[in-house]
Amino acid sequence: MALFDKSINALKKNKEQEQNQSLMKLIKRVHSVVENTDIEKHRQSQDYFGALLGNSKEMDITSVDVEGMHGEWVRVNRVHMKKYVILYCHGGGYSTGSCVYARTLTTKLACSTSMDVFCFDYRLAPEYPYPAAMEDAMKAWNYLMVLGYGARDVIVIGDSAGGNMALSLVVKLKEEERLLPRGLVLLSPWTDLTASGKTHETRAEVDPVLDEEYLRQMTENYAAGQDYENPLISPLFADVTDFPPTYIQVGDNEVLLSDATMLHKKMIKANVPARLDVYKGMWHVFQMSPFKTAYEAMDKCAEFIFDICR
């Protein structure tokens, strides 16, 4: 009987591995369609996919202008929680991405948490390099404060470069001796523009989304001539003492795995209540994809948020 159980488990494991491999190949093909050497076409392709995958009759999406910066509120069309709010920082290497592209994530978050989500279109590199995006993140934060939210009412969430932005925003708030958000949720965060982590090499062959050439280009677009170890550029080098509770999700098959694990290790050492989930067989910001593991990951984010909002 034990041998039979082992055989069944082995078959299940092989099937899961085959499904992961198929999904990885699909993601690679989709990403090659979205990615374009013409940065403007790249941005348009992302918006197309965001509009396609992020549309839902359950959602109410409202555009707003914040001192000349476009933003949008994503809300569920039902009675829901109003006390807390999510500030969402979209990814895209600081050179691409938008509120529309981020709907693949913001709609899932609004649905799983029943909270309002505010996303904003910060200025993009290379047209607007550092510190333009950081200034816009602070503008979004101040906008929520003017609306009457307190710092402790806000959960800041970001994916990839948006995870970098979420962390950098907390670094900036600390510098200005302002109150910090209630919590952070980071999806495949890009924390280290020096690319010092080992997985930049060990995961290079299996990552279907990111490669070193792309990361180098994004780094140059955003921070050419800057000190890459500046904590506002690479928050891995920040003093994370007194950071709010943080939840990190990352895929096991991505080059930025080390960016997440090194940050988590640093936070634990500084006594920050930090939690890390590494998803086996998953890729960079897999939560965007419309499949079971992505929705389960969003539910885990919601559980973390509910825990810190008690």
Results as ranks from 00 to 15, higher is better:
N55M: 08
I27Y: 05
G150H: 12
T106M: 02
R203M: 14
P245E: 07
E296V: 11
A137F: 11
V146H: 07
Y149W: 05
S22Q: 14
D47H: 01
K15P: 07
V185S: 03
F237K: 07
Q287G: 01
N271F: 15
K174D: 09
A137I: 07
T246H: 05
D277R: 09
M115S: 11
V100P: 04
I86D: 00
K265W: 08
Y279W: 15
R182T: 10
S7V: 15
Q19W: 11
D299F: 07
M59E: 13
T199E: 02
E303M: 14
V170N: 00
G91A: 02
R182V: 04
A151L: 06
Q17T: 12
A274W: 05
E175R: 11
L186E: 03
H264Y: 14
Y88L: 05
E229W: 06
K266L: 10
N77D: 08
E127G: 07
C119H: 07
Y228K: 10
G68Y: 00
M115F: 10
M262L: 15
V156H: 00
K266H: 05
F120D: 06
N20V: 13
D153Y: 03
T194E: 00
D38A: 08
N9Q: 13
E303S: 14
L23H: 10
G281W: 00
L105F: 07
S188N: 04
Q44V: 14
D259A: 06
M24W: 08
F291V: 10
E303D: 15
L256I: 13
V209A: 04
T104G: 09
D207A: 05
I248K: 05
D60I: 12
F286R: 01
K13A: 15
K25V: 12
R310P: 08
L87D: 00
V278A: 01
V209W: 01
T246D: 02
H42W: 15
P273I: 04
L186T: 02
F4K: 13
I27H: 03
R275K: 14
V278C: 04
D153P: 00
N20C: 09
Q21P: 08
Y128E: 10
K265M: 08
N253H: 14
L256H: 05
P245V: 06
V100R: 06
E127V: 09
Y130W: 08
E205Y: 08
G183P: 03
H80K: 14
P181E: 03
V209H: 00
D252H: 12
L257F: 04
D299G: 11
I155E: 07
P131L: 03
I233E: 01
N271W: 13
I248W: 03
Y149A: 02
V79S: 14
Y48Q: 09
C99F: 01
V34C: 09
Y48P: 05
F286Q: 04
G225T: 03
F120E: 06
A51C: 08
M138W: 09
E201N: 13
D239Y: 08
K108S: 06
L256D: 04
L173Y: 01
T219E: 13
I86F: 00
V154R: 00
F120I: 11
A140E: 09
C119D: 09
